[in-house]
Amino acid sequence: MPRFADIAFPTAVRQSFTYRIPAEASGSDDAIASVRPGMRVWVPLKSQMAIGMVVRIHDEQPDFETRDIARVLDSEPVLSEELLRLTDWVHRFYYSSMGEAVQAALPAGMNFLAEPYVRVTGERTDISLRGIEGDVFRFLAEHKAEHEKGTDISLKEVARVWQTKGERALYRLVKKGLIEIWQIPRIRMQPRMETLWEWREDVRAQLASDGVDVVITSHFPGISGGREPKWINGLRLLSALPLPSTRQHILDQPEITAYVWNRIRESGLVASREVPAGQVRSVLPYEPDGISVLNDEQENIFGPVLEAISSRTFRRFLLYGITGSGKTEIYI
């Protein structure tokens, strides 16, 4: 059973750091005993705790005292050995740190972040304090009494309730030993969200049955018969676009400027919703005639890529070549 793990952190430091896999876990079913390359771990780093990525496990005893891994955050590796080899090549070729290369390879929403939390220390909650310190302490004490563990209130939530004065009071309470602030790794993936814009449901039905001109006259009767504002023409152009769509795609239309779009939003005819970025279908026009013809070398490289796409088989490809060698045409 390997006894040591090399761990990379998302900093500019190029080297990895060696930690000990605790001896008491080596022969047990503890999660720490099953640590593997590609897993994130919670470890002490200087005077605080940090999240790092295991890039190698081994039995090579370092010539310095090592610290123990405190917690394994993943039940399975989030990066495969193949991706770890790729990140190792990237960090050597581009002279970046291993941790920075690893962070770039992680799935969107997965990161090395931790969330600070606050809790009251000890059992006494009837301590007499004045002013904002007393208010904040009583708030935390009441939270502790209402919750079984009393430890699940984040520093962000406390700051939201008490603003800047409360945050300063928190650190004074920490110095007095009445509360403590600690961190919990943020291990769940937070998918990147994107805003989609679409017609309001009743407006969409009216557009389908009566057309855009009827929508304009029914919602803005005061502008009929006179000179139309510029944004009204933008409204007509928007009715010809496939919605829902992103703001960026809408603003790609020459006649729909930021001003026009803001007026359309303020009119209340459109509504927004948040969706994971991976669910946003591409709305960019597909123009195959504008794609360059591949040369023989590009065709040889593109063949396996097309085969994987056609068979709906997941594979990874790295296009490696000097500037101007034709990588972009293959990607397109």
Rank of each mutant, 00 (worst) to 15 (best):
V270K: 06
D213I: 01
P221K: 00
L294E: 08
D296N: 14
Y286A: 08
T257C: 14
G234L: 04
T151N: 14
Q206V: 14
I179L: 07
V54G: 02
T66E: 15
R36E: 09
M189T: 15
E255C: 07
I264M: 08
Q298W: 01
T195L: 13
D74F: 10
I32T: 06
S34T: 08
P244F: 01
V280E: 09
V305P: 03
F64S: 03
P116M: 11
G222L: 00
G27C: 09
S75T: 15
K176V: 00
V260F: 04
T323C: 15
E266D: 14
V13M: 06
I184F: 05
E115C: 09
A258P: 11
V270W: 10
A50P: 03
I21H: 05
K176N: 08
G222E: 00
I216V: 13
Q103I: 04
Q190D: 14
G38D: 03
A70V: 14
Q206C: 07
I187R: 13
V215N: 00
A208M: 12
V118G: 05
W199Q: 02
Q15V: 07
G166I: 06
R71Y: 03
R263Y: 00
R188W: 08
V13K: 14
T164M: 13
A25K: 02
T87A: 06
V293A: 11
V72S: 05
R315C: 05
P62S: 02
D6M: 06
L235A: 05
Y19E: 05
T18F: 03
R316W: 05
Y259V: 13
E24Q: 11
S47Q: 12
A271S: 11
P2E: 03
I153A: 05
G38P: 05
L113S: 15
L294C: 08
R130N: 06
N111D: 15
H219L: 06
N295D: 15
E123M: 10
V41N: 02
I21N: 12
T195A: 11
N233C: 02
V161L: 10
A5I: 04
R130V: 02
R247C: 03
H143A: 06
K230M: 09
A105V: 07
M98N: 02
A104K: 02
K175Q: 15
I232K: 00
